[in-house]
Computed example of a mutant assay.
Amino acid sequence: MEKKNMDFYSLEFDKDSEIFARINGLSYKDNCTVPVSDLRYLHVLHFGFDGKSHEGEIICNKYIADDLLDIFQKLYEAKYPIEKIKLVDEYGADDEKSMADNNSSSFNFRFISYTTKISKHGYGLAMDINTLYNPYVKTVDGRLSVEPANATDYVDRTKDFPYKIDDEDLAYKLFIEHGFEWGGAWKNSKDYQHFEVPDSVVKKLYN
């Protein structure tokens, strides 16, 4: 076990563990190409929208485990509000349900929407924050696609509303400092909730 303290820590796990039993057949699907040995379970604390301290759980790639622990510890120290940090498996590994409930999460083996390319979430190399208020917006066949579907009120980023991630936001600054890229800076689509490692890292780890 790799620990920083009793509140923020990382655990290795294998296919015989209770942790794997929770994700097997859900976020860790039968066709998952990522070895279990590459994943880590993180325990973090976060301040909810109620202003109280809550426990959070994350499954991510071991490559970003220490980065996430440091980021979430700093967010916690700053009392940065994050409503929920649950494993996507608590939503049946259904990303839409997780995002619609404003859940922040990392690993879920899947493909990028409308493509056959493995999402960086599929490698556990991305993290989404306060997903309802920071949707994924893309034009598909001439029509606007908003994920989650109940986030249409937050598509217009010129509006002022709470929990909005922009380049002045603390989460943005911390993720960028740790070498992540922000989906809100993409040209052809906008994923305001999303932070991921560069493509070069994925190619290096999973050639």
Rank of each mutant, 00 (worst) to 15 (best):
V34R: 02
H43N: 14
L42P: 02
L205A: 11
N150R: 14
D191P: 00
Y163F: 15
P135E: 03
E77F: 01
I59G: 02
V155R: 13
D128C: 14
I64S: 06
D67A: 15
Y192D: 03
D167T: 15
E12L: 01
K97S: 14
M127K: 06
Y206G: 11
F180M: 11
L45G: 00
D67P: 01
T33E: 14
I64H: 08
L68G: 05
F111L: 09
L75C: 07
V202G: 04
Q73I: 00
H178L: 06
A21K: 15
S98P: 04
Y41L: 10
P148V: 12
I64P: 03
P135Q: 09
M6V: 01
A65K: 08
L75Y: 06
L69K: 03
R110Y: 01
S37D: 08
Q193D: 11
D14L: 02
E181Q: 12
E12R: 04
A78V: 02
K187W: 04
Y80I: 06
S106N: 10
D66V: 01
Y41M: 09
K190C: 07
F109H: 13
L87S: 09
F180S: 04
S53Q: 13
F109I: 05
E96F: 06
V44K: 03
I118A: 03
N108V: 13
D70H: 01
S145V: 04
Y76Q: 03
N150I: 14
D70Y: 03
P162G: 13
V44W: 02
E181Y: 04
F180T: 06
G183S: 05
Y80N: 05
H178C: 03
H54N: 12
N24L: 05
F49E: 12
T131V: 13
Y172T: 07
F8Y: 03
H121V: 08
I129D: 10
D89T: 04
P198L: 07
D14G: 09
N207D: 14
R40F: 00
D167V: 10
V140Q: 06
M127D: 10
A65E: 15
F49L: 14
A78R: 10
G48S: 11
T152L: 12
F13K: 01
P35N: 02
H121E: 09
E96C: 05
L170E: 05
H43Y: 04
R40W: 01
I176M: 12
S104C: 15
F175D: 04
G92Y: 08
A171S: 15
T33L: 13
F107E: 10
E57Q: 11
S104P: 13
N5E: 04
L39I: 02
V202C: 06
A93H: 07
R110I: 00
S119L: 05
K190A: 12
D169W: 12
G51W: 12
L11D: 08
H43K: 11
S105F: 15
V155I: 14
F107D: 05
Y76P: 02
D156A: 10
L125V: 10
H46E: 01
K29Y: 02
T116N: 13
W182G: 07
D167H: 14
V34P: 01
Y80G: 07
K173Q: 15
H46I: 09
S106C: 15
A100I: 09
V44E: 01
E90G: 00
D7P: 00
K138V: 02
F111K: 14
A185Q: 10
